[in-house]
Amino acid sequence: MPAKFLRSILITGGTSGLGYHCALNVARKYPDYQIIIASRSDPNSSANALNNALNQKNVRFLPLDLSSLAQWETNQFPPIHSLVFNAALQFPGDVQYSIDGFEKTFAISHIGHALLFSLLRPHLADMARVVIVSSGTHDPAQKSGMPDAYYSSAGELAHPTGQSLKNNGRQRYSTTKLVNVLYGYALHRRFEAINKKSGKHWTVAAFDPGFMPGTGLARDYSALQRFLWLKVLPKILPLLRLLLTPNTHTVEHSGKMLARLVIESDEEIGSGAYYEGPKRIKSSDASYDQDKQECDGRSRPRNNFISKRSSIDEEN
């Protein structure tokens, strides 16, 4: 049976928070595209909620198992127009590990996405875009209140040893968000070479959604911290913009800005760029270090290494 839709757009962590609102805006813009929200589970039937809200039928939930592409190929989804790498979590306490033995913050936000790109690369349309959700916390100059990002090697992030085992979980998060930007710039150079050789038109952009209290990002915080994050802070956004950072937004607003990077023209967005909301800005000084983008020189495998199986299952 021929595919019903013209193209596919896949959004990780798309069942709630930033990913959900990105999917809402993208699905509205592209009713003839298959919008796939990928996560470990969809307990709130988010795909049905999106379809009902739009009176459409183009959003579908896909349980994501990175150990196999069988479900993608069995469903015969049309070529991929865009991959939105949004899934992330913070683990503020002691270091936690994924099922594969990787530090969990790094596994969810980076390793899983790098693996997913490698698996789905053959399914990309000739004109395709990758959008990577990073964070302003990757840049010490922004003084976000998070511990400064510090990148020593990909191997050390994946398998912390010695002193790095004692690093604050929030610091591991900001460092992983730096890796997201490094990876985006490395992909950009590869895309330029691929485009020149094959005639394809692949682009990549990184995105800072800003400070968004109320999302599921702090799922593993203490009960009091979750209460403040979910119930108190979302009600005082104007004060937070004044006291903390003007880059403070509702998840609805940031979801719309993320969707913009998916649906706007290449002339508007470009490639190899970093965005804070709708604005193209410079990322951190450290993010432009090409040695770190490509290979840190002290560990193998490369910065964008992957495992045979990793988990992508939550939202920013």
Score class of each variant (00 low, 15 high):
65 D>A: 11
79 P>L: 08
228 L>W: 12
93 G>I: 03
228 L>M: 15
278 P>L: 14
168 N>H: 15
68 S>V: 05
137 T>V: 15
165 L>E: 13
315 E>F: 01
229 W>K: 05
184 G>M: 09
300 R>K: 12
249 H>A: 12
140 P>S: 11
229 W>L: 06
48 N>Q: 14
263 I>L: 08
205 A>W: 01
173 Y>C: 11
56 Q>C: 02
46 S>V: 02
162 G>M: 10
173 Y>L: 11
240 L>W: 03
100 D>P: 00
29 K>L: 08
292 K>N: 09
239 L>N: 04
208 D>K: 00
118 S>G: 14
80 I>H: 02
302 R>A: 12
138 H>V: 05
77 F>H: 12
12 T>P: 07
315 E>S: 15
10 L>C: 11
101 G>Q: 08
305 F>I: 02
5 F>I: 09
89 L>P: 03
14 G>P: 00
249 H>N: 11
22 C>N: 10
109 S>K: 11
53 A>T: 07
241 R>N: 06
45 S>N: 14
15 T>V: 13
164 S>Y: 01
22 C>V: 05
66 L>I: 03
145 G>I: 01
5 F>R: 09
260 R>Y: 10
282 K>E: 15
90 Q>P: 00
268 E>R: 08
52 N>Y: 00
289 D>V: 11
62 L>C: 05
234 P>E: 05
101 G>W: 08
146 M>E: 01
260 R>N: 12
173 Y>M: 12
289 D>A: 11
265 S>N: 12
252 E>S: 08
193 A>P: 03
138 H>Q: 15
53 A>W: 00
176 T>V: 08
130 V>N: 05
27 A>P: 03
19 G>Q: 05
93 G>L: 04
9 I>F: 00
296 D>Y: 00
303 N>M: 15
66 L>D: 01
258 L>N: 00
264 E>S: 15
23 A>N: 06
299 S>L: 04
204 V>T: 08
63 P>L: 04
95 V>E: 06
9 I>M: 01
272 G>A: 11
26 V>F: 07
50 L>G: 02
